[in-house]
Write a protein that binds this DNA or RNA. Structure first.
Lengths: 211, 211
DNA sequence: TCAAAAATTAATCAAATGATTAAAAATATT
DNA sequence: AATATTTTTAATCATTTGATTAATTTTTGA
């Protein structure tokens, strides 16, 4: 049986399987499923092309695996924030915005990748995803309660989610166009994203004040 | 020389060239450049595959053309709104949000298509795009002036654009995920987007009230 | 140490796909 | 009507690319 090298030098000494998966995520994220060639992935991983199929059977299988793991991680991280019974709505927004802003500054093309592939294959990926729990999260309870108490204007909670996620994520999705139209350089753009970590929570608070 | 059929039955009696371009936009939009096959396009257009190359030389050329036209139209529409000297900031936001919400309800996968392809090929497409004028638009002048007068909190105008566009467009980009996570059906989802036509302008107004 | 199992490689295959070609059909020109 | 030009088609080509195979190397376990 294939034996994983023990985690001595965790970052450097990876299993072939792990090297392939890492490379796959990188290449898929950069090029999208359709444009990514298995040869790109094997090259990025520094392994022979045949090994990819040896370990994962096919490009599709590998993609599905990587994609599912990525999405699961994404949703899990979100649920961790939203299901925290110790934090208020405002705090959850703050935590979400800062955490995901920082994540996305590391991996700026993750959102576009996820949404694009999700569009290409909605049902298949959605099926093996779970995460329907998000709308049974403690956060949603808090929002509904706040609405009952007149603290928030009554509206579909999805609006709240769309606003929070949209304001945070959209700059990364629209970056090429936004930067081209506005003429700002990468450094300035990053500065703006940085600013938004504190701005978005304030904005959301304001939006949700009035009815 | 190729002769365009005169525009008698404009919608039905299209030039072969036009049929191909329409089909191309449809297929590219649905599948993305990489996954779109020239055979898909020729089939969608109801013409022989060879005609595609006869008229447009290559898949790349056809794509570039269709993409450039689409983007130009998009930007042009935006500039029309933003350069109107007769409308206030608030009115511009209203007009933008309603107009583009309606457009996107007709062509929901346009944004994801545009942003994805723009990411794949930022410089090439950006180059033949123009549209840098957006940040010299009358709208930007208005925003800066409002900031000078303390009517708006001082911040980079790009924040304003990102918020307006993001709040409007993100639901369409995130639809598959958002719908899966929230469990709302397509009808409800459309209802929410409809609501947002009036909500977003209000939200923006609120966001921009505070300092 | 040695044989079995697992991992890796180079070479090759087969299907998909963008593009071309040569012939046929349709249209325009005189 | 006759001919030239343009448009369209079917057939084919050449390349790309995901996948397989058979041989080789490495690792494991007795």
């Amino acid at each position: 049986m294939a034996k994983a090298k023990k985690g001595k030098e965790a970052a450097l000494d990876l299993t072939t399987e792990e090297k392939i998966k890492n490379a796959a995520l990188k290449v898929f994220t950069k090029k999208g499923f359709a444009a990514a060639r298995t040869r790109d992935i094997s090259e990025e991983a520094g392994i022979n092309l045949a090994l990819l199929n040896y370990y994962f059977r096919s490009k599709e299988k590998l993609f599905e695996l990587v994609m599912t793991e990525t999405l699961r991680g994404f949703i899990k991280g979100m649920l961790e924030i939203l299901n925290d019974t110790e934090t208020s709505i405002e705090e959850k927004v703050e935590i979400f915005v800062t955490r995901y802003s920082e994540l996305l500054m590391q991996q700026p093309d993750l959102p576009l990748f996820i949404f694009h592939e999700l569009k290409m294959n909605p049902e298949q990926l959605a099926s093996k995803l779970g995460g329907e729990g998000l709308f049974k999260s403690y956060f949603i309870k808090q929002v509904k309660e706040a609405m009952d108490n007149g603290k928030l204007p009554r509206m579909h909670p999805l609006h709240f989610i769309m606003n929070m996620v949209g304001l945070t994520v959209f700059p990364f999705i629209g970056a090429p166009l936004l930067r081209h139209l506005s003429g700002v350089d990468a450094k300035t753009f990053n500065g703006l994203v940085e600013e938004r970590k504190t701005l978005i929570p304030k904005w959301i608070k304001m939006m949700m004040k009035g009815k």
